[in-house]
Simulated assay, not measured.
Amino acid sequence: MKRTASKRLVTISDVAQSAGVSKATAARVLGSYGTASPVVKEKVREAAKRLGYQANELARSMTTGKSKTIGVVVGDIENPYFGQAVRGISDAAHAAGFDVILSNSGEDAAKEKAAVRVLMGKRVDGLIVTPASVFETQHLHEVLRSGRPLVLLDRTIPDLAVDAVVTDDRHAAEAATRALIEAGHRRIAYISATESDDPIYRGPHQINLSTVMERIEGVVAASRLAGIEHPERYIRLGAHRRGMGDKIIAELLQGADRPTAILASDTVVALEVFKTLRRLGMSIPGDLSLVAFHDADWTSVTSPPITVIAQPVYELGFESAQILVRRITGMGDTPRCRVLATTLIKRQSIGAPPAHEDSGAVLQDDAAKIG
């Protein structure tokens, strides 16, 4: 059998020869730098199109010092929250003439470090990162020392002097907790997806994300202001782990003095709450009231529709990319944190606590219903 020769890549020399110009002239036209007459530019571009020439972006970045790409590292691309944020980043970047290279850390600091290292090796012009930990940040400090612009998305690092775009997480958690308290609830659980070996919250040392700590502080502050004692006892962590969400939620709902309301850290956790309640034969809001961070599409079409804290997620991504582009092009002042407002959208998942829960006791018929 006759072997078919592989097609050779078209080079700048090929384009120059076809256009009847020097290699240097072809390089200037195709690289959009230097000068050339309109006639010469047209000849070179026609030759490049005819031959199917594709620019060697790595070689171009070596020459110009710019790759026209930005790197993005997010926590979980399966989470609709990050999907919307990445869409905002992509739209803003493309409008400014930049391509986007996306990586997923899975909320793992080691994977985040590896992703940042790869993106830096690809000579991206700047980075947008959703940090997986406030403790493991050496790699982000190295980005800063390299002179490469860096913007933090959704979360902050206290000792890292870079731009950040976040939402008002503490105020949002306070508003959601107050709404539940106003409906009569005193036993309010906050369930987070953040990684933890121990699902029971025992203190800030377990928390490696700024957003999680701010939300916990918001829930606790609003609860204590209302005279609720020990609100921390209903805080649970690690609901993102495979199979752990249902277990954590079920144990909470089957325990003594079970919570009468849950604030879910995101709609992935909220959906797990919804499914667990259905499995246990419980209803919303008859047996349990539910509020979730993020206004995912499904939350408005369930029965009942879920009360949510709507976050400007697309705008979060869009603004972070705009800030990064300004930094790349040499504009911008002292790095700062931009805080975007959230909105509590009240639907039908908040009701009064069950009448027999007022004393804090779980009646026998309710225990039978759960079991």
Rank of each mutant, 00 (worst) to 15 (best):
D14P: 02
D14A: 13
S18E: 10
A19F: 04
A24N: 06
A26D: 12
L30R: 03
L30F: 06
G31A: 09
Y33R: 06
S37L: 04
V39K: 15
V40R: 05
R50Q: 15
Q54E: 10
N56A: 09
N56D: 15
S61D: 07
S61Y: 10
T63A: 15
S67Q: 09
I70E: 09
V74N: 01
V74E: 05
G75A: 12
D76G: 11
G83R: 03
A85N: 05
V86H: 01
V86M: 01
G88L: 01
G88N: 03
A92I: 01
A96Q: 14
F98N: 03
S103T: 11
S105K: 11
D108H: 13
D108Q: 09
K111L: 14
K111D: 10
A115Q: 12
M120F: 03
R123P: 00
V124T: 07
S133E: 14
V134Q: 08
H139Q: 06
H139S: 09
H141Y: 13
V143R: 05
S146D: 04
S146E: 03
R148Y: 12
T156D: 01
V162W: 10
D163F: 06
A173N: 11
A175E: 13
I181V: 13
R187N: 08
I188N: 08
Y190I: 00
Y190G: 07
S192R: 06
D197C: 00
R202I: 00
Q206I: 02
T211E: 12
M213F: 03
E214H: 09
R215A: 05
E217S: 14
G218M: 00
V219H: 14
V219R: 04
G227T: 11
I228E: 05
G238F: 13
H240T: 00
H240V: 00
G243F: 07
K247C: 04
A250R: 15
L252R: 07
L252S: 06
A261H: 09
D266N: 15
T267N: 13
V269E: 14
V273S: 00
K275P: 01
T276S: 13
M282N: 05
I284C: 07
G286V: 01
V291A: 01
A292M: 02
T299F: 08
T302L: 14
V308W: 08
E319N: 08
I323L: 11
R326Y: 02
G330L: 08
G330F: 01
T334V: 11
T343V: 06
I345Y: 04
I350A: 06
I350W: 06
P353T: 08
H356W: 06
G371K: 04
